[in-house]
Amino acid sequence: MIPFDFEYYRPQSITNAADIFQTLEESGKNPVFYAGGTEIISMARMSSITTGAVIDVKEIPELKAMEFNGDDLVIGAGVTLTQIHEANLFPLLAQACARVADHTIQNKITLGGNLCGTIIYREAVLPLLLTNAYLVIASVKNARRVPINEVFSKRMQLNRGELLVQVHIPRNYVSCPYVHVKRTKEDKIHYPLLTVCALLTDNQVRAAFSGLVNFPFRSVEMEEALNDINLTLEQRVEQALNKLPAAVPDNLEGSAGYRTFILKHLLTSIVNELETGNVTNS
């Protein structure tokens, strides 16, 4: 039971959504954009967030798009993880989506919701980081198309009132060889101990991580180390481990030591799989 009241709005267009956000903001309602709503409902129940109004954007046509358009695969922020998984237009993203929460919740969680949520894992962002995706972001002022790296740093860096509309993934990446591995403490349905998404493009391995540190990331420095052909595979992995962007945490999912052990094990097998073309995908 959510122990407070809020208003519910379901705009039909982006302009409509941006306008109503601004109006509600000005009237002090502290509105939130609402898509799948799974995180908002569970946090509101615990009073971890409060809001005076939710703006349900998931039925706006642009947010429901999922198609190839020119050089891009366009996926609306309101598309559910299940829809992405079932359509399987970008297998790496499809797999990452299929391991967030559980299947029934994937019917509700949207791509936008996973990217913009407060839970630290945001596993759907990993394939986007690897593919230099673009994000289309709208506000009452304008709509902009920006590279993901400019907006996603540890988490989505959106201004108040900005709405994530779409993700544009350059088409040439969607068929790259890839590996997706999610490791948990034990259970399949669980937050990641460590999720790794990796793909091979121009003979270079790219890798992005969730659960390893307290935010999802892709590290060019780590990739450089992993791709250093002057070193043995073992040395490359060791070098990559030295370039982590933050300390590996101890938490309920596992200790830093164990995470690092698993990371080493996974990186070795992932790089090996991608380079030998013998991809198993577990």
Binding site: K185, E186, D187, K188, I189, H190, Y191, L252
Partner: peptide
């Protein structure tokens, strides 16, 4: 294999939801 109460240093129970208190699910 998985079920246990997890206590913080101050003995606050840390896994009070079924998201963090794990039970076996189908397929396992």
């Amino acid at each position: 294999s998985r079920e246990a109460f997890l206590w913080s240093a101050d003995q606050e129970l840390q896994n009070t939801s079924l998201r963090t208190y794990k039970v076996i699910r189908i397929g396992e």
